[in-house]
């Protein structure tokens, strides 16, 4: 990956910079008994269109960092910048809007709604946007077809395999056409065949200029990544650029 970085004349923000963390700490129960330090002084930068992996053993702070970068939580200290804008002081409403418009999240356990069919699950992020049912269905079907699940659109999550459920979750993350796709431990609940399909999907997303941010302790995705951040006990222990 190229390391050439161009600074924007107006804002002082690198043109290829999408997310930047500066001295980020996350302490749970801060100021109360049983304080837990999950992240300590983490600084990193994620570029537009890159495939970035957060690697580390269990308890190293990968999911916490992912939640912070995905605007689902706030840091205790330090700053998180998105396109040069400090989002640390954003209100919950502003963070929700940012998350809805710019970030797609694929959870480790997929978090699909059991009572809804595959296409209904995929289309849920369009409901707050006021898209009609027909519009939601059409857009969901396009994505499901792209991910090879068109024939499973009417099935409930329990009728799908782990890999299929994950693809439904990916389709849901993509439905608002976000710039950033975040995947938490995507290989932990699927078999080898589904992992190969997942790798193909991630490659396609990268070629569509999506920024991919993946937390994993599995090495199988590593050869496809542009940057790997190693986390140990909440601290950044190393950076590897491809």
């Amino acid at each position: 990956m190229t390391n050439i970085r161009v600074r924007s004349q107006e804002s002082g923000v690198r043109r290829d910079e999408l997310i930047r963390c500066e001295g980020v700490w996350k302490i749970y129960n801060e100021g109360r008994p049983h304080e837990v330090q999950a992240l300590a002084d983490v600084s990193l930068e994620i570029k537009k269109g890159s495939f970035t992996i957060l690697n580390g053993p269990s308890g190293s702070g990968k999911t916490t960092l992912l939640a912070l970068l995905g605007t689902m939580d706030r840091p205790s200290r330090g700053g998180i910048f998105m396109k040069g804008k400090d989002i640390t002081g954003f209100s919950d409403t502003a963070l929700s809007t940012l998350r809805r418009d710019s970030i797609g999240f694929v959870f480790q356990n997929f978090n699909l709604i059991p009572r809804l069919s595959a296409w209904e699950n995929v289309s849920t992020p369009l409901i707050p946007a006021g898209v009609s049912e027909k519009g939601r269905r059409d857009r969901a079907m396009v994505l499901l077809e792209k991910l090879g699940l068109a024939d499973r659109a009417s099935h409930a999550p329990e009728e799908l395999s782990g890999g299929e459920q994950q693809r439904v979750a990916i389709a849901r993350a993509l439905i608002n056409n976000p710039e950033i796709i975040i995947l938490d431990e995507p290989t932990s609940n699927i078999d080898a065949e589904a992992t190969d399909i997942l790798i193909d999907i991630l490659k396609n997303l990268k070629s569509d200029s999506k920024t991919l941010l993946v937390s994993t302790h599995d090495q199988v995705l590593r050869p496809h990544a542009d940057t790997v951040f190693e986390l140990k006990r909440g601290r950044l222990a190393g950076i590897t650029h491809d």
């Binding site: 996350k26 749970y28 129960n29 801060e30 939580d73 706030r74 840091p75 205790s76 209100s91 919950d92």
Partner: peptide, 11 residues
């Protein structure tokens, strides 16, 4: 406010 307190108040 601590980050958690802020989130708590917002919630």
């Amino acid at each position: 406010l601590y980050a958690e307190e802020r989130t708590d108040i917002e919630n």
